[in-house]
């Protein structure tokens, strides 16, 4: 396994993107940017999965009646995982956006630190 980074350009890119998304989700104070970061993070994992699941020169395992031989096809499971993952991240994004809208309507800001401070000060029942 003496492969250079250039051979794994997709994996390298996806790990870099994961880092970007992760730090944005964790450290940015703006809620919308946090959600964007979460999406970058999730998408980078899908890129990682898809790039590892793909083998150059092979096709999808869709047969024309005759069963395709294992040397010519790509395992469809990674693609299935990516699809499932996309559905999951869409629903989480929707939930986070709904929560952001409610917080914005109540406090008029997207800054999470400010929201927490305001909520602590307001302390309404």
């Amino acid at each position: 396994m003496s492969a250079s980074l250039a051979d794994h350009i997709y994996e390298v890119a996806s790990v870099i993107l994961f880092g970007i998304g992760f730090t944005t989700l964790l450290l940015d104070r703006n809620l919308i940017k946090k959600i964007i970061g979460m999406n970058i993070m999730d998408t980078s994992v899908y890129l990682f999965l898809a790039s590892m699941g793909y083998i150059t020169g092979r096709t999808a395992p869709i047969g024309d009646g005759t069963p395709p031989s294992a040397e010519n096809i790509i395992n469809p499971v990674p693609a299935g995982l990516v699809l499932t993952g996309i559905v999951v991240s869409v629903s989480v994004t929707a939930l986070m956006l709904a929560l952001t809208i409610r917080l914005y309507r109540r406090y008029g800001t997207l800054d999470i630190d400010q929201i927490v401070t305001l909520a602590r000060k307001g302390d309404e029942p």
Binding site: F18, G21, F22, L25, L26, L31, K34, M38, M41, D42, V45, F48, L49, M52, G85, V92, L95, M96, L99, T100, R102, L103, R106, Y107, I112, I115, V116, L118, A119, R120, G122, D123, E124
Partner: peptide, 26 residues
Amino acid sequence: GRALASSARYMIMNLVGSGLCLMGIT
């Protein structure tokens, strides 16, 4: 307000956690 603000923080930390899990699984 406090429940909403705290659930935003809860969701963010949990999404960080599930992102890490997903990467680990991958």
